[in-house]
Design a binder for these strands. Structure first.
Lengths: 139, 139
DNA sequence: CTTGACTCTGTAGTAAAGTATAGGGTTTAA
DNA sequence: TTAAACCCTATACTTTACTACAGAGTCAAG
């Protein structure tokens, strides 16, 4: 019930988010997560939101976003003096970027599916040269 | 008509693929593209397929694949002594990975779309805190 | 009340993926 | 026929994103 009252140490956050302790301090230095409050002895005290934020950073990296781009994504909400119009423009650009990524992934997927469909049994691979397509028609 | 007879130099390939000359030599050393034939004076001679291959590498990187993973994707066709069964298994794993990426991107996209929809006019941003969702429900 | 597992700051080292430079040969267009 | 613009190898440097100490303080279990 009262889990907000029990702040997480950096080690617990690291375990929950699946990263190392040093990585969290690194993200803090880089401005990807804000400096958390400290205990009397100087220990960082995190809330559960920090875990979600770090997991998001981790996943976004796996999707090909750089830390710089991820910071921009995260800043699509904290900025205190940006207009909604500005936010909308930035969000639109990100959506377009995401759409392009999805397109490329779908293309890769369909080529792999064709490969699987054509490549049956246990004949040698030279009989399955469908992947030519994967390397073509990119825009 | 006879464009196969005119091989491309490394500089032309680099320009066509949108990378630097050094990057191509680096990919060759890393085994991502095979060593091309050489001219009498030792110049590398590329075909247009090389351009497609390098473009594919470039795009796959932007989708969050490491060079090691990209190599695996490209090897889904050249190997001369793999069975189709093996290829099918490897392709299946790649498709699953791609599906997970697409899922995450769709999730990010829908959150950004909700942000744009909610955030109208020119009110300050604190009125648009929809992005909370972006940081959650990953899995 | 101590010992082992934390935490802190600060700095240094690493892996991946390029990018640049040195020192040399080649092609081509004026 | 020469100078700009290429290419070659080999090696060194850079950037991004961590990862690993060193040296010191803190906390919690037995």
């Amino acid at each position: 019930m009262s889990r907000i009252l029990e702040p997480l140490t950096i080690g617990k956050v690291a375990r929950l988010a699946g990263v190392g302790v040093e990585t969290i301090r690194f993200y803090e230095r880089e401005g990807l997560i804000e400096e958390p409050p400290r205990s009397a002895s100087g220990y960082r005290q995190y809330s559960k939101e920090a875990v979600a934020r770090i997991r998001f950073i981790k996943r976004a990296k796996e999707l090909g976003f750089s830390l710089k781009e991820i910071k921009e994504l995260l800043e699509l909400r904290i900025d205190p003096e940006t207009t909604c119009e500005d936010i909308r423009n930035r969000a639109k650009a990100k959506i377009e970027d995401i759409d392009r990524k999805i397109d490329s992934l779908l293309k890769m997927k369909s080529v792999l599916e064709r490969l699987m469909a054509t490549c049956r049994g246990r004949e040698p691979v030279s009989e399955c040269p469908i992947l030519e397509a994967l390397e073509d028609r990119e825009k």
